[in-house]
């Protein structure tokens, strides 16, 4: 667990006068499920986008999978998976066509693609939906598919931006089982969520308020530190001090 996969020092992103992310620093270890919490507008998505090489940091430094977020963003992209807040598979393609597309983009050969697609569809019990257009799947299924596709190239780290927003409790549970499976396989999970029960599932949790990381520890120790019964209470204690509104 000592192997550091993500390392961030004083990472900052400013849009004009507005500091979206303010000098955040933390390390994430291999195989960890790292919960990245914060109220709406706290800067979670911006921070995540910098780590994924979608957004260029204003200052500070960071490495993901051993590559610099400033200078080696394209190398980072080979080693990570990303699932955004918005569903972003191609709605007008079928399940199989989406798998083939993203597998191909990451350079998997035809036979590898076929193998992994079969394995993935089996795992999700999706084999019958292979030729279904993605737009006609229910949201929960879409999200599971989206996660499975974001890990099709066996990345070192997967970034999940509110993956379970709007998903029913049963599917949410299945989703977290998939996350655990991936983490057991050695994939590092970096996940943002608004569900505090999900925060309890994480190995460690950081809480962002107004662009800064205000707390970072295991859920158990955080509860102890804030003398709280649940993560929900911890979160509310911290978020109450927020200056930024919704």
């Amino acid at each position: 667990m000592s192997d550091v996969v993500i390392s961030v020092r004083d990472l900052t992103k400013r849009f004009g006068d507005f500091t979206a992310v303010d000098r955040i620093s933390f390390d994430v270890h291999r195989g960890e499920i790292f919960g990245f919490l914060g109220a709406n507008g706290a800067g979670k998505t911006t921070a995540m986008r910098m780590l994924c090489g979608l957004s260029y940091p204003t200052s500070g430094s960071g490495t993901v999978a051993g590559y610099d977020v400033r200078t080696e963003s394209e190398q980072i992209k080979r080693h990570i998976g990303y699932m955004s807040q918005r569903f972003s598979l191609y709605n007008d393609l079928t399940v199989w066509e989406n798998i083939r597309l993203f597998a191909g983009i990451y350079g998997l050969s035809k036979t590898q693609t076929e193998e992994r697609a079969t394995e993935l569809l089996d795992r999700l019990n999706f084999s019958s939906e292979r030729n279904t257009l993605v737009c006609s799947l229910p949201l929960g299924w879409k999200q599971k598919l989206s996660f499975a596709i974001s890990t099709i190239h066996r990345p070192e780290v997967v970034f999940l931006d509110e993956p379970t927003g709007g998903v029913d409790p049963v599917t949410r549970r299945q989703f977290w089982e998939m996350i655990y499976e991936a983490a057991d396989g050695g994939t590092t999970i970096f996940v943002t969520t608004h569900y505090m029960d999900e925060a309890e599932y994480c190995s460690r949790v950081s809480i962002m308020v107004d662009g800064e990381v205000r707390a970072l520890d295991t859920p158990a120790r955080l509860k102890q530190q804030f003398a709280a019964e649940s993560m929900d209470e911890v979160f509310r204690t911290l978020a109450r001090g927020a200056q930024r509104g919704e």
Partner: peptide, 14 residues
């Protein structure tokens, strides 16, 4: 508009 371009941007495709 669909947000799919972001999924492409996060891949190593040039």
């Amino acid at each position: 508009e669909n947000g799919t371009i972001e999924q492409i941007n996060v891949t190593p495709i040039s």
